[in-house]
Amino acid sequence: MAAGRATMLRAALGLIPRNRPETLPELTLDQAGVRVDRDHLAAYDRVCGFRLNDRLPPTYPHVLAFPLTMHLLTAPDFPFPAIGLVHITNRIIVHRPVSADMQFDLAVRAADLRPHDRGRQVDIVAAASVDGETVWTSTSTYLSRSSSSPTGAKPSDADPAPEPQATWRVPTRIGRDYAAVSGDRNPIHTSRIGARLFGFPKPIAHGMWSLARSLAALEGRLPDRYTVDARFQRPILLPARVQFAHEDGRFTLTGAKPHLAGQVTPA
C-alpha cells in the first residue's frame, strides 16, 4: 500500500510543468518470481464478473504488471506526465492458458513513440513468461493530448454493432472497487473533484474494467490461445447503464454513446 501511495505521489508531482525529453527511456523494467495471491485474484474476479477458478482472466496479468508500468510512466525521463494519459487501445495475446499456480517473470517497456492527430501516442508493452516461455503479452496504447485537443477518445468508423444481449448497471463504486484491486487510483475514476479537474462531469469507469467485464461475459467461449483487440471510445460516466453485445468474435459495450469495441481472434 505504501508503495502504491508513493507511486501516485510521483504521478501527481509529474503534473508540475518542466522540460521533458522527446524520446522514450531505453530500459525494460522486470520482476522475477511473481506469484498470484489467490485472495486478490478472487477479489478481482468478483469486481470484474469472472468466475472463481485458477485459470487467470486474460486481463489479470495487466494488474500484476501495473506497478512496473507505473514506475515506467512516472520515471523522470518519460516524455509525458502519467496523470492525463488516455488509454485508447489495448491488445492482449494469450499464448497459452495461464493458471494461478504458475510463477511469472514480468517485463514492461515503452515503445513506438509516434504522432497522433490529437497529440502523441506511445505503447506500453508488458509480457509475462514462465520458465523462459512467453505466455501472455499486452500492448497498451496511451495518448498524450496536445493542449488544443478535445477531451475524450475520438470515435472511429466501424461496422454496425451486434444486437445487445445484456444490460448492465454500473454503480459509482465500481471506480473505487476496481482501483482497490488494480492499484490504478487515478482520481478521474475515484473522485468527482478529480474527474472535474480533467474535464469529466463525473468519475469514469476504468477502461480495463470495461474490457475485463466484457471478457468475463465471454467466459466459456474463449479459446485457449487468442488475441483480444480493444478500442476504448467514450468514457463510461458513473453511475451508468450499458449494453453488451457480441457476435462472431466481435463485442461492444454501448450506452447513449459507444464505449468499447473489441475483437477476439483465435490463434
Rank of each mutant, 00 (worst) to 15 (best):
A217Q: 13
T252W: 12
P258T: 11
S149Y: 11
L73N: 05
V36T: 03
F80E: 12
G14D: 11
R114P: 04
V130T: 08
Q263D: 08
S191W: 09
L72P: 01
L106S: 09
R55Q: 15
D159Q: 14
P201Q: 13
P79R: 14
R192E: 15
M208S: 03
G4P: 05
L106T: 05
A82E: 10
T137M: 02
V228C: 02
V130K: 13
A217I: 02
V86N: 07
D45Q: 13
S214K: 10
Q263M: 07
L85V: 03
H259E: 10
P155I: 08
P160N: 12
A205F: 01
D30Q: 15
E22F: 02
G220L: 10
F104V: 07
A240G: 02
A195I: 05
P162S: 14
V86T: 04
V228Q: 07
A230R: 07
E247V: 01
P239C: 04
L211M: 11
L211R: 11
A128L: 04
S146T: 12
S214Y: 07
V86M: 06
R51A: 15
A161L: 12
V242C: 09
R196C: 03
A107W: 04
Q103R: 14
D39Q: 12
I204Y: 02
T89C: 05
G33Q: 10
A75K: 09
A153G: 15
A127V: 04
I204P: 00
V130M: 09
D123E: 10
H206T: 01
D30F: 08
K154D: 13
R231G: 07
A205P: 00
I204L: 03
F104W: 11
D159Y: 08
G255R: 07
L215K: 06
I193Q: 14
Q165W: 15
C48F: 00
H189M: 05
A43L: 02
A161H: 13
A111T: 11
N53Y: 11
P155H: 11
I193K: 14
L29I: 01
H87A: 05
E22H: 09
G262T: 02
S138H: 12
T7E: 15
D37V: 01
E22Q: 14
N53S: 15
Q165H: 15
L41I: 00
G220T: 08
D30K: 14
P150C: 12
F80G: 04
R213M: 06
S99D: 13
A205W: 06
A256T: 11
S214F: 04
L113H: 10
H95I: 01
H95E: 11
A261G: 08
D248C: 03
R91H: 08
V63W: 10
K202C: 06
L24C: 07
M70Q: 12
V228M: 03
H40S: 04
Q233D: 15
S156P: 04
H206L: 05
R46V: 00
V34G: 11
G207Y: 05
P97L: 15
A256L: 09
A161G: 09
D112Y: 07
D39P: 02
L24V: 03
D37Q: 06
C48S: 03
Q243T: 06
P266E: 13
P162Y: 12
F232E: 09
I188K: 10
K202L: 12
T69R: 09
H206G: 03
H40C: 02
T141D: 14
A110I: 05
A205H: 09
R173I: 08
F78E: 10
I93G: 01
S140V: 06
P187E: 12
L215G: 00
A100Y: 08
